[in-house]
Nucleic acid binder design. Sequence first.
DNA 1: CTCGATCCCTGGACGC
DNA 2: TGCGTCCAGGGATCGA
Length: 333
Amino acid sequence: MRKSEACRLGEHYHSRCDILKVLFPMPELPEVETVARGLRQAVLGRRILSVALGKTDFIDDPAALEEHLPGRAIEAIERYGKFMLLRLSAVAGANDNHREGDAKRASLLVHLGMTGQMAPSPAAKPREKHTHVCLLLDDGRELRYTDARRFGRIAYLTEVPLEQELTRFGADPLEIGKEEFVKRIRERHARIKALLLDQSVLRGVGNIYADESLWRAKIHPSQLGAKLTCRQAETLWRALQEILRKAIVLRGSSISDFLDAEGQPGEYQRRHRAYGREGKNCQRCKTAIRRGIVAGRSSYFCPSCQRAPRGFTVLPLPPRTARVRSPKPRRAS
DNA sequence: CTCGATCCCTGGACGC
DNA sequence: TGCGTCCAGGGATCGA
């Protein structure tokens, strides 16, 4: 239940990466979609034999995992916003329907938080540091969840609680229609950046793709939703969809540092136009991209293309030291 | 309704 | 080289 050193799993650190072991620094919709697709290919149909847990403070009900996962097969893997949904079979041979839901279908809800990773691994392979959930599969592999910061979340949910859980979220940004999007944005007085990040408005958008779509649509993150023109809101809708679709095709945004070995991390970070580009030129107008805090998050924007509402505070550019930023000279591998 | 502050947690960046 | 400090960031929560 709590962080007990006693139930800590292995501390070995091995950084060989399979194609599935990609570190996404902040998984949003495209990254989660990428992981879900990989898992679908790798573990669909496998049955869970047993469960081993490490730290469990990010798991809703750890005991429920140990009790209810063994014996179930992974029947489907879906993405819901930034969540992955592992659909599990009913327990084989159990047909006692007096046990409310427990023998029926259920799901494992997984949120990767900031640093979560989920990937299969040979059971014999030493567990990486911060591995907190290991699901032994019927093919001799383990489906492992590792998460250094434990900002993620894992929950075992039967059908009704799952439904209740999912109703808290807004529309999928790739599915929402233009009119609906425009309406939802323009009826709100919050800042557009806050609205894009609000999972009950849209599910799956995070800091990177919010900034990228706002840059593309030439809208300042601090602008109020209600103050957008219909035209602006429509442009934003289109920008958001195009960017998310492209990012999925490019397997999301990962960190260039991690691009080594045979891993095929995302490529979308190369396409970032605003996010993380403070001080660099806007690729439309050459003005230096700036940073400010909106909705409590770092927000990157072009002060020229994206006109700020009155009273917005831009953060001063950091001292430009000799930031040659050579990507880690070399690494013995 | 909306906002900001606070907490969770760790690794990486930075300063000395 | 090593240590201390600061900070990011998704989300929940609480008070203003």
